[in-house]
Nucleic acid binder design. Sequence first.
RNA 1: GGAGCUGUGGUGUAGUCGGUUAACAUAUCGGCCUGUCAAGCCGAAGACCGCGGGUUCGAGUCCCGUCAGCUCCGCCA
Length: 599
Amino acid sequence: MRLPLLSGETNLKTHHCGALTTDQINLKVKLAGWVGRRRDHGGLIFIDLRDRSGLIQLVFDQRNGEKLFALAESLRSEYVVAVEGDLVRRSAENINPSLPTGEIEVHVTKMEVLNRSKTPPFYIEDDLTVDENLRLRYRYLDLRRPEMFNRLKLRHRAVKLVRDYLDSYDFLEVETPMLTRSTPEGARDFLVPSRVRPGSFYALPQSPQLFKQLLMVGGVERYFQIVRCFRDEDLRADRQPEFTQIDIETSFFGSENLFAILEGLMALLWKEILGVDLKLPFLRMPYREAMNRFGSDKPDLRFAMELIDIERLAARSNFKVFNAALSDGGSVKGLCVPGGSSLSRKDLDDLTLLSRQLGAKGLAWTFIEDKGWRSPIAKFFSAEVMDEITEAMGAVPGDVLLFVADRWEICCQVLGYLRRHLAPQGLAKDPHFLWIIDFPLFHYNEEEKRFDSDHHPFTAPRGEDLVFLDSDPLAVRAQAYDLVLDGVEIGGGSTRIHDPETQGRIFKLLGFSEEESHNKFGFLLEALSFGAPPHGGLALGLDRIVALLVGDDSIRQVIPFPKTAAAACLMTGAPAVVDEKQLNELKIMLKVDEGDEEE
RNA sequence: GGAGCUGUGGUGUAGUCGGUUAACAUAUCGGCCUGUCAAGCCGAAGACCGCGGGUUCGAGUCCCGUCAGCUCCGCCA
């Protein structure tokens, strides 16, 4: 690959190292990059010169000049050099078949050391096993590794595909504010103090939700944005305090069109980046079914192990735990672990403990053997019922059955967790996309003793469920949907409320007073009253999608400068104490004891 | 807020039942070496075992606390 902009006499590079091929043989080339491995044979030195494209072998021969050779001897790892030389074909016995540039090498005639380097704290090469602490502290060195550069590149390609694809459907990329106002509900906001109005704060957006709706009222019709979002909550492997969404909103579009557009986008990404053809359309599954069958609103469909309802059979037992759950209006559900006989008694105790921590009162279990059940609870069941349960759960000798009897939500949640926990190892990458639909509009918040939006307060209820809005809010289904891939929620969206009257009713149900609604969402209610079009959209988690495309478990791998689990940046030291002067300007006084502060 | 795992030369690891000199590889530095590509050979230097306290005649090892990283629960409209 020739670099047209870099071919002038004054430039350091005419080619990229890894892009050189036999086509350039006999050319004079100028290269620049980092010194990788150095193989010093005394009178002959080989250097792997690395740039973002890959590496090529440089050769220095003592017989071709002492001065240049002495300079080559002084090179160390990660020195930055510019060289000039002849690209030559290696003799047959010197070809390295494991290197893309293994048939060629550069006989250097001129070299300048552009910069020296301290000995790096870890090797700049792929497949390294080094403490993540170090990688994050020296992230710029970590990024020099080809593996990491390829992640950046793949992310760039994905984003470009998204932009071009949405552009081809007349979506317009529009920017929205980063300094906005804090809204109730949802995640904890990151706050930014106002200097001009002391005591007041901006919030960084958790998502551009309201702005994109206002863009619909503003007549944009098809909007998207690759946008940073901020949530001040505890981190996970797939959660960072700042992350990137592919944010989409449409007017006059309808959710069917939206599904089709999104499925097309996923198909494009998987085809262009992984060469995989996705089967369209994606499966759709109601929330209730996902919970009943898989105990999760983001089920991993790469393996079976479905939860089985055994309420009717449980009712025929003398097991008090089952009977009590049922008479309280709860459920009894089971999970069959194929080959579970390898679980030890301690494993089962651990699973029981885990179930308790997840909210269940306990975990019942039985081994399935040729003769039937081997279980502490076998005595509460007739032989007939035991056989019928075994059959209902599709169990064969060698399996273990796990049961939870509790409120329906607890049964689903706990067994769903155990299902994931006990999933077969080494599941192949096999994209099982699905839409989860028919989410409830609300859930009950035990702590606050009120209803919370399951999605967000701007989600439209399903028209036919509107009649329950006052009588039985929990029965109202939302026009909301999540996009799920192999157990990961990669996006979610909804049709929005577009009339101020319905929006007002929802705010009221959520426990906002008239004044509070007016105060915090007055601008939205007002906007809706000026001819808001029917609209809806969704947001995709870009980091998660890229991580899945790359095959990483953690989104830190695809974020160039991520935060640790304690939300710190090990490279810059953020967050950090600020100067007294800065606080004074903001009229902020810290409540922290002096002794607690660093510095 | 809670639970679990990890922390030993620059890096990756070993270190038994608590026992005296903390081992190995690699990187680093020096020497030899003209076809290596994880170059090779010879030599040198490099650790108060995350930090603090305790038990003990004696602690890398046991106990308590603490810090950092990771994973999970809570949390994440």
